[in-house]
Simulated assay, not measured.
Amino acid sequence: MSADNGSRVLVAMSGGVDSSVAALLLKRQGYEGMGVLLKLFPGGEDKEGLRGEKACCSLESAETARSVAMGLGMPFYVFNFSEDFRREVLERFITAYQKGETPNPCISCNRYIKLGKLFRRAAETDCSHVATGHYARVERSGRWLLKKGLDEDKDQSYFLYNLTQDQLSHLLLPLGGLTKAQVRRLAEEAGFINAHRQESQDICFVPDGDYARFIEQYTNTPAEPGDFVGTAGQVYGSHRGIIRYTVGQRKGLGLSFPQPMYVCGIDPDNNRVLLGEEAELFSDRLTARDLNLIAVDSIPSPMRVTAKIRYRHKEQPATVVQTGPEEMEVRFDKPQRAVTRGQAVVLYDCDTVIGGGTIY
């Protein structure tokens, strides 16, 4: 894709190799780029030890992003979205855990901050497009479509299912047709200092993976203990707060059983964690709310799809029925393990994202 004359694009740059190569490719395509780093964390949180030095928008990341942008001849700016991030991502994340859900904050961040806020800022700065380093593709076929990235191991279309037609019409995803190995090779050839930077697998604001500690520190409130109970109501012992558990969890229960036992559900109203054997983890259907559709205006019920219930879940054949303007029921051909409230279910037709919603 080549740029139209005078096309200016706002490039989200994190300091990582993906966004750096996205900026490089856009420059080669003739776009006039403007590099932007998003400041997502209020000043005091780094000092409280909630994040690591290599976390998103750390000083190291900012300097790397600035170095790459300047090397490409692009102006570079830092946009302070910390209060928006606190409200739309951190507080949603904490509230979801307190309600017994297991949220995916990367989806909220893309929806409300990295893309939602950036599209508005792009319009304010006379940029025709926003670009990111996501591994996904945008195509036009009557309507704008979101498609999987060609690198199956890196495809990130799952995180972008909330995009609208207007947003897709102004979004550039230069890495959608590349593999990670190709991206690193391009970065190396360009002399980028982050060409071989290791990727983090953790949530950016909880780099050590201890979500419960983060929530307790953030709210300055210890989680309230309660009962572990069986699916028939029998009490097995005490848990250390529902924020420490998620459906499918086996380790860290602190109890001993003659057979493996798993978290099968969380009852926030009664502050209970439900335990059961693995067979009790499987379900052949789910309901989802906050529905967003991309490939269609509404789901022609029933519709055959493949559905993914978490990012690393292999999508499975299913039938979907839209039960309301923003609700749907997904019925799987085969029962799925650990369908989890708060996670996103994303629907596909081959490599095209139909849409998705939040499991409840």
Rank of each mutant, 00 (worst) to 15 (best):
V273N: 01
V273P: 00
V273H: 00
V273Q: 02
V273M: 01
L274C: 07
L274K: 10
L274M: 14
L275R: 03
L275P: 04
L275I: 04
L275S: 05
G276H: 01
G276M: 02
G276C: 01
E277A: 10
E277N: 06
E278P: 00
E278K: 07
E278A: 05
E278T: 04
A279R: 14
A279F: 07
A279W: 04
A279I: 09
A279T: 12
E280Q: 07
E280R: 01
E280A: 06
E280W: 00
L281C: 05
F282A: 15
F282M: 11
F282T: 15
F282E: 10
S283Q: 15
S283C: 13
S283T: 13
S283V: 09
S283R: 14
S283Y: 09
D284G: 09
R285D: 13
R285N: 13
R285Y: 10
L286E: 08
L286F: 14
L286Y: 14
L286D: 08
T287Y: 11
T287R: 09
T287G: 12
T287Q: 11
T287M: 10
A288H: 03
A288R: 01
A288K: 03
A288F: 02
R289K: 14
R289H: 13
R289L: 12
R289D: 14
D290K: 15
D290I: 05
D290N: 13
D290F: 06
D290Y: 07
D290T: 07
L291T: 04
L291Y: 04
L291H: 05
N292H: 14
N292L: 07
N292T: 15
N292G: 07
N292S: 15
N292R: 15
L293N: 10
L293I: 08
L293G: 13
I294L: 07
I294R: 02
I294P: 02
I294K: 05
I294W: 01
I294E: 01
A295D: 06
A295P: 00
A295E: 06
A295C: 02
V296Q: 03
V296D: 00
V296A: 01
V296E: 01
V296P: 00
D297P: 01
S298Y: 05
S298H: 14
S298D: 05
S298G: 01
S298A: 08
S298M: 03
S298E: 10
I299W: 04
I299T: 09
I299E: 02
I299P: 04
P300K: 06
P300E: 09
P300D: 10
P300S: 12
P300T: 05
S301W: 04
S301P: 03
S301R: 02
S301A: 07
S301D: 12
P302R: 14
P302A: 07
P302T: 09
P302L: 13
P302C: 08
P302S: 10
P302K: 13
M303V: 08
M303P: 02
M303Y: 10
R304L: 14
R304D: 05
R304K: 15
R304E: 12
V305M: 08
V305I: 15
T306Q: 11
T306D: 12
T306V: 08
T306C: 09
A307W: 02
A307N: 04
A307P: 06
A307C: 10
K308P: 00
K308I: 11
K308F: 00
K308A: 11
I309L: 15
I309W: 15
I309Y: 10
R310W: 14
R310A: 11
R310C: 12
R310I: 04
R310G: 13
Y311C: 11
Y311T: 09
Y311L: 14
Y311M: 13
Y311E: 12
Y311F: 15
Y311Q: 10
